[in-house]
Structures are given as C-alpha cells and as structure tokens.
Design a protein around this nucleic acid. Structure first.
Lengths: 209, 209
DNA sequence: TGACAATTTTCTGAATAGGATCATTATGTC
DNA sequence: GACATAATGATCCTATTCAGAAAATTGTCA
C-alpha cells in the first residue's frame, strides 16, 4: 500500500509560496482571486484556512490545481489499484440502489479503486418518454442483456434492440437510455462501466431521470 | 474532440456519489472519516460545505483524491477514447478464438481503443490439472457466469465456486484459472477485462495455455 | 529625520461551519 | 405489529470564516 508521507504543509505556506513565486502582492492576489487582502493575510499566517467555496474560487481564478493547494503527497498512482485481490459478487451481497428507471445492484463493492464497475441492473422504463432525459457521464460502458430484451436509445443513433445474450458497448458521454423492448415488462442486464475518470462512477448513480 | 463539460457539481453531490458508490451508510462514512453524521447529512443536502481541514481529513481518511472532491473539469487527456460511438455484439459477429481451455468470443471488436474488452467465454477445462498453469496478465477483470457454474482457481486464494448469476472481480496479475464446477460439462461466462495497460490485448490472445 | 505611500496586519461584526441531541420518517426484519 | 437501521430535519451552541475598516509596518525620497 506504499503510502508515501505527506509533508504536512499548511495552506498558509502553500499560499505564500504561490504568491511569492508569482511576485504578487497581497493586493494583486486579492484582485486576481476576488478574496480580500485581509483574508489572504490571515491565511498566510495560519490564523485562518479557507472553505470549499473559497478554495474553488482560488483554484479557478488563479488557475491552480486543487492538488497543489493541498500539498498532496505523491501517491503510487501508477501501481495496480487492485493487487492480488478479488471479490465475489451476487445479488445478495450487492449494494442496491433504486432510481425511477432502474434498480441497480452494485457488485463487489468491497473492492475499492476498481478500474471497472460491474452492476446488475433491472430496467423498468418501457419507453423513452417514460425514461425522461438521456443519461450521460464520463467513461465507457458495456451492457450485456441477461434476461428479456432492451431498446437502447442514444443521442447519435436510432434506437436499437439488444436481445438476451447480446451486448452493446458505448461511449457513456453520448446521451443514452435503456428501456425494455416491446413485449418485455422488465429486463435484466449486466453493465460494466469504466471507472477510469475521476469522479466518474458516480455520475452513474444520479444522472438518471 | 467534444470535451465533456464540467458541470459544476456541488460538494454535496460529489459526497453522495462517493458514498453510494462504496455502499456506505452515513454512519459508516462518519466512522471512516471522523466527521459526524449530522454534518455529512447537511453537506449532502447542500446546507453546508466543508472547510480546508475537513476536506483534508476526508481525503486522507477515505483515501480520496482532492480532485475528486472538487468536480474538476477534465483535461483533453482524459477525454473518452471512444467518442459518441457504439457497437453491438453477439455471438454471430464476435471474433472467435479457441484455446485448449477456452473458446473466446470477442465482442464489439469493430470498436478499437476501448477501455474494456468484453468477451463471452465458453469454459471447457474441468479441473485445475487439466487447465495447466495459472494465467496472469496486466489489468483487472470481471467475470459473470451466464450458464453453468465455474470454479475459480487463483494464486492467493482457495478455489471458489461461482454460480450462474454471480460474478467475480479480480486482479489479473494474480495467477488465475477458470474451470467448470463439479457437475457441469461446460460453462459460459461473460468476461470484461480492463484494457488500461498497453499491450493488454496481446496478452489476452496469447497467455492462455 | 520626517513625510508619504504602498503593503501588511489587526480589529470588529455578521455569516457560516460544525458538532451534539432529539424527533420524525421511511425501509426492512423477525 | 414490534423492532432495528437509515436518513432527514429541527434546535441549540460554539468555533471559525471572512469582508470591511482601522491600525501598524515597511520602504522611498527629500
């Protein structure tokens, strides 16, 4: 697990370093960032830290990466995230999440930092209209139909039917929606989403109408 | 190349996503992070944000990158490799590869540069002995049993049985082998391999005895 | 040394973070 | 129905953030 030490720098130190490296006065930095001089001063003296909003504001207006503000340690990012580990998933030990259109069963949630997220999904929506707005999020996904049939609606293609035993691979950033095919009340699919992008997985949980 | 917008997500949304992705309750997340349930709840409801210290605490205790906590926009580097494309795969249009132990049906091979490789696999080997040496390659894989039952042998674990309707996620660099479970002549599984590491496809095609 | 201006720090008060506790409402189990 | 768990909401309270104004520091030049 190779934890590299964090050399616990304070926000104040980081901020002062950024400021002096750019040769800014507090006033200049204040104008650029929109944060008052007095506040910046206090931060640099460790009499104050900043809240989420201010940090974001700083990061955006000064074009600084968040990780820079947090003096983050170098992690072993490139090492395999799952090393010699495994997890067995079934519906019983799955994490169930219910939305209007789908019932998700997240498999193998005990394994963290996976590159892929396997999800058994029960599809209830029977039409694009009932489904609502198309879903889009980062990454890619592969859907394999286990039971029933589905109709895949997407931003750039005509709807297409995918039957049990077939699968579809698509760019998740393209709007998409899965509904049951004609003649099916429900369908069960296995979905696998790439979790490469940060923040990613997530969107999965919310974006559905 | 169609940069997907960063849609200014709130801290609350991000937090909830992280939590549900991991299948944590508020209480669990509270215990892991050291932040009280009431606070977490308020954050998720956007009635509160967090300050520097709490964010750092969260990041460290939950092993989350700061950039994940801030819905940072993605750079061109991270943009999807497959943009607005899709492919439908079934056994008929699959690329079939036969080895001693398995029959592979590579799905969606018309899409190149995918992050994941979906493969329907028919397993024939009935014992570890018959299988031969364990397989290992870079990346991770998730196997979902469609038909029959399998026994998963691996380097660091006792053999385990995985039945139809269940799945197993594992680090592919750990030696592994899939054979049919007792009482099954054959088994059919859907495998999805992360293709993150270069040269992965090759390994898939070769490594299997 | 004494202006004088630019810069930085401190002071003040309003707003917010953040913790504790209790009540309420699902949801699920026995 | 009784019961446990989970999520949310409502208070209450203290500590902290943070903007604006005032005070202190620093540097420059006559």
């Amino acid at each position: 697990m190779v934890a590299v030490q964090a050399k616990a720098r304070t926000l104040g130190e980081v901020m002062r370093e950024i400021r002096s490296r750019n040769g800014w006065t507090l006033k200049e930095m204040s104008e650029k960032s929109g944060i008052p001089v007095s506040t910046l001063s206090k931060v640099e003296h460790n009499r104050l830290t900043l809240s989420y909003d201010k940090l974001q504001q700083l990061s955006q207006r000064l074009n600084i990466r968040m990780s820079d503000l947090f003096a983050e340690e170098e992690t072993a990012d490139k090492s395999p995230r799952v090393t010699g580990r495994r997890s067995i998933g079934n519906l019983d030990n799955a994490v169930r999440v219910t939305t209007d259109n789908y019932d998700y069963f997240y498999l193998c949630t005990d394994l963290r930092q996976k590159r892929m997220i396997p999800i058994v999904t029960r599809i209830r929506a029977q039409s694009a209209k009932e489904f609502g707005d198309l879903v889009r999020h980062n990454g890619e996904e592969f859907i394999y139909v286990i039971e029933g049939g589905i109709e895949v609606h997407s931003e750039f293609y005509d709807p297409v039917r995918v039957n049990a035993g077939e699968g579809i691979y698509l760019d998740s950033s393209m709007g998409h929606a899965y509904v049951t095919a004609e003649g099916c009340d429900e369908a069960v699919v296995l979905g696998v989403c790439s979790s490469e992008d940060d923040g990613l997985m997530d969107s999965l949980l919310n974006l559905h109408g």
